[in-house]
Design a binder for these strands. Structure first.
Lengths: 344, 344
DNA sequence: GTGAAAGCGCTAACAG
DNA sequence: CTGTTAGCGCTTTCAC
């Protein structure tokens, strides 16, 4: 292995000299362009292999005007959100797809609005990223207009409420909730409650919509006392369930498994048993450890897929232009276990 | 607000022209260097504010030979590891510190050894990152020698077993386990078992060491049948507990809360109750939802702090050079709740 | 205190 | 098919 002086890595020029070719020809080989004779190419590739040469990223970005870096932006990355396994899985999917396509992933977590304001210009205006994946959790995300204004290509994970033309990937939130609630109706439960997600989040709204649609299609009256809003936390699920108990539901659809865990705690404290006294259905199919002794019926979302597809979509946009708007909705699955009482 | 032509952002040169100064002077102002008159500085700052100018990241890196990007490398980022809230918290801490210091974070998750081999040259040799934070989970991590060889400054999260001179941050794994086991001894339990972490991980080894040391210092014989190795998963904790039950322990120290959750499931299936029939202590103080109805005595680790300190340390190395080796061990806390039987 | 000029290492016309 | 050349937008000497 030919080794460069310890402190200075090789440059294109030097590789060229070693391979008896010009800098441009080496560049062509590295970028897989045609128009280089097989012989020359082989010679150059050999030198590259021997030297372990890797082109300088900064110089490359500067000259080519693209960085091969994708940014993942997660606003409001407050602690409790990260207790949920949603983001880890999403990040894994995104990372895997980036690896596959030779993109580097850079991660922007904003915990406060201040942080958001001060960091965002760096994301948008320095040309550091070629494009952005925005995991939007809130309704009317203020970052979307800024991305548009600065002409940064972006894909949203989760349907954005305020940007009809934005590219996005999402799961069938409404359909998943619909399936869950319908399942409870079919099992004969009479007082089916729901603990919703935060209603300032599109996913929260969509899942509530699925629940109400399921009940209405089956001719059930909606009882407002059986609809309590939660916040995707365990504590929120517990509190919500405490509010529901006096109204004597016989089944509960929680819009996330974490909230289902909280609900379960409340149910047990009230001396009731799932599913004998109360059916329970969740949403996410997250870590089974959280409900270690209760096999939870739940709606499974393909979160890693969601992440991978977001990357694929963004790369497509980068290659083929901003129009037309892309959208992709991934299906959800109702996973029936014993907590809904169907297995008895 | 003065606006540049839509497609081309401002350059230093243009800002200079607008502010009646040279490119170099503007550069000095932006980089906070002295030697610019207050008047000129003000004029330039005003133009920058008006234009919303942000320097081009690639050009900057190329000229300055530093990117202001830190890489976070997580090898073996397989699914089950991400079910644990450890990495999300670590990432949050790292991200927060990066935001504070105006560094950009780029994330490298490797799921397979192949991925590792193909992506690593990009991390190391393109000059894309100024330094690397390596979250080493395995004994003798093969990436460490490569980082050394390529002269990439790096900090390891978790004590590296094969690099005595490496900079690292860690928690008092052994001391935490020692405190947990000692607590069980003091409470009078006679047959104290442990479910260890993976013994090819430094943290797993260290926690086992703390357990054995605690028992030995209190004059207890070590019973090999009461030591079963797990893998930091719920399923692993369950299996390990099933192996322990025939040997009738009266207390169990699980080297992670996730494994404690699995152990709890096994204990309950055997018709036993915690803490009446069996004391249980965990490690991590992770998401309480996982053991929703059992307040778990556990060892709390300051994981976010760990991440933040890793960044601080790396920036220190970047600024002040590779020597001397830095190391920082953060304390752990024994959090006593009811699962150990101390509250009765 | 300020400006001119020389790169940083690469890509991408443009010649040949 | 190959090489020459002109930048990409910034930092950093070096003069003044």
């Amino acid at each position: 292995m030919i080794t460069a002086e310890l402190t200075t890595p090789f440059t294109l020029e030097e590789i060229g000299r070693l391979a008896n070719a010009s800098r441009s020809t080496v560049s062509r080989v590295i970028n897989g362009q045609s128009g280089v004779s097989g012989e020359t190419r082989d010679r150059i590739l050999q030198v590259i292999a021997q030297t372990g040469y890797q082109p300088n990223a900064a110089a490359r970005s500067l000259a080519a005007r693209r960085s091969h870096v994708l940014g993942l932006v997660i606003p409001l990355a407050v602690h409790f959100l990260f207790a949920d396994p949603y983001f880890p899985r999403l990040i894994q999917g995104i990372s895997q797809a980036c690896n596959r396509h030779d993109y580097t992933l850079s991660l922007y977590l904003f915990q406060t609005a201040d942080e958001e304001r001060s960091i965002y210009p760096r994301v948008l205006r320095t040309g550091f990223v070629d494009g952005v994946i925005l995991s939007s959790t809130q309704l009317d995300d203020p970052l979307i207009p800024q991305l548009v204004e600065n002409q940064v290509p972006f894909v949203v994970v989760g349907r954005p409420s305020n940007a009809p033309k934005a590219h996005y990937v999402d799961v069938e939130n409404s359909e998943g909730a619909f399936a869950a609630a319908t399942h409870l109706v079919r099992l004969g439960y009479q007082r089916i409650a729901t603990i919703t997600g935060p209603l300032n989040a599109v996913a929260g709204m969509d899942r509530l919509e699925g629940y109400t649609r399921a009940l209405q299609e089956r001719g059930r009256e909606l009882d407002p006392t059986l609809i309590v809003s939660g916040d995707f936390t365990e504590a929120g699920g517990y509190t919500a369930m405490c509010q529901l108990l006096p109204h004597q539901p016989d089944a509960v659809f929680a819009a996330s498994d974490i909230m289902a865990a909280g609900a379960l705690r409340a149910i047990r404290e009230a001396g009731l048993t799932v599913p004998q006294d109360m059916a329970l259905v969740g949403y996410d199919d997250m870590n089974p450890a959280s409900l270690s002794d209760l096999p939870l019926t739940t709606v499974r979302q393909p979160i890693r897929q969601l992440g991978m597809q977001a990357v694929e979509m963004l790369i497509d946009v980068l290659r083929n232009g901003l129009t037309p708007p892309r959208r992709l909705i991934l299906p959800t699955d109702l996973v029936i276990r014993s907590s809904c009482g169907a297995m008895q």
